[in-house]
């Protein structure tokens, strides 16, 4: 029963393009948003000026709907009128249709996702940083350890469980966060920014092809199941520590 639905999918070049897009989407958004979240947390945890403002600014995108975020970014990306083009024109750069050309559309989508989720991940790092005992820093200072060495050899290893937790969340988000496609690109131009969940939606509710959408759903669930298994193993490992 139904294996021809999968065969059709595997024979569909759009399906493979969408998978490739989603892999790039995940491959960029996961590490970059984790890296930015870590930088944000280190800053928000250090004794800098305007710390309250900085924390609020980093976290604010998290409470906005993705649809609203997309509308805000539309103002940046619109060719000719958008903020990016205005800044570019100051330096004599030509107008760029960020959302309208296949080379840049997916990247424009990726930037909005990173912007949306980095502040959310920051709070987990922030909480973890606050559990690192002060005397580790004091001991490192007495030893004359540079800040870079302290961060790399002491802070980062202690943050490892948090990083894994965030990475799983970021992975789930790379399947789930697609609302902004509806506003910014609708998966175009020529499917260049189409992601898996958007394709499932389009198949089921724009092309009324429920069987193929269902087949794709099963594939996504299988991948998520593997992610789940990995996390369960990791959770098991963490309980051994305690």
């Amino acid at each position: 029963m139904g294996t021809e639905n999968y065969a059709d999918l595997f024979a569909d070049p759009t399906f493979w393009l969408v998978v490739k897009n989603n892999l790039l989407y995940a491959g960029v958004t996961i590490p970059v948003s984790i890296g930015i979240a870590l930088a944000m947390a280190l800053w928000a945890n250090s004794k800098i000026s305007a710390r309250g403002f900085v924390r609020t600014a980093y976290f604010t995108p998290t409470v906005l709907p993705m649809i609203a975020a997309a509308n805000l970014w539309l103002f940046f990306y619109t060719p000719g009128l958008g903020v990016l083009d205005q800044i570019g024109s100051l330096f004599g750069l030509p107008s760029v249709n960020w959302l309208g050309q296949p080379e840049t559309a997916l990247w424009a989508i990726i930037i909005v996702t990173i912007w949306k989720e980095a502040g959310f991940f920051m709070i987990f790092y922030l909480a973890a940083l606050q559990t690192i005992p002060e005397d580790l820093k004091e001991a490192a200072d007495i030893e004359g350890t540079s800040r870079w060495t302290y961060t790399r050899r002491i802070v980062l290893p202690l943050l490892m469980p948090t990083t894994l937790f965030i990475a799983v969340n970021a992975m789930i988000n790379s399947v789930k966060l697609i609302d902004h496609l509806f506003i910014l690109t609708k998966g175009g131009p020529s499917d260049a920014s189409k992601l898996i969940l958007y394709y499932i939606w389009e198949m089921a509710f724009a092309f009324f092809d429920a069987p193929h959408a269902a087949a794709m759903t099963i594939l996504v669930i299988a991948v998520l199941g593997i992610v789940a298994a990995v996390q369960f193993l990791y959770l098991d490992k963490r309980t051994h520590y305690q």
């Binding site: 930015i36 930088a39 944000m40 800053w43 928000a44 250090s46 800098i48 000026s49 305007a50 403002f53 900085v54 600014a57 980093y58 604010t60 995108p61 906005l64 975020a69 805000l72 970014w73 103002f75 940046f76 903020v83 912007w115 502040g119």
Partner: peptide, 18 residues
């Protein structure tokens, strides 16, 4: 540190401000 943190903060809320 303060400069970097505040610069990133401004970039981060720029879409809302615009």
């Amino acid at each position: 540190d303060s400069f970097g943190a505040i610069l990133l903060a401004i970039i981060w809320i720029a879409p809302l401000l615009f």
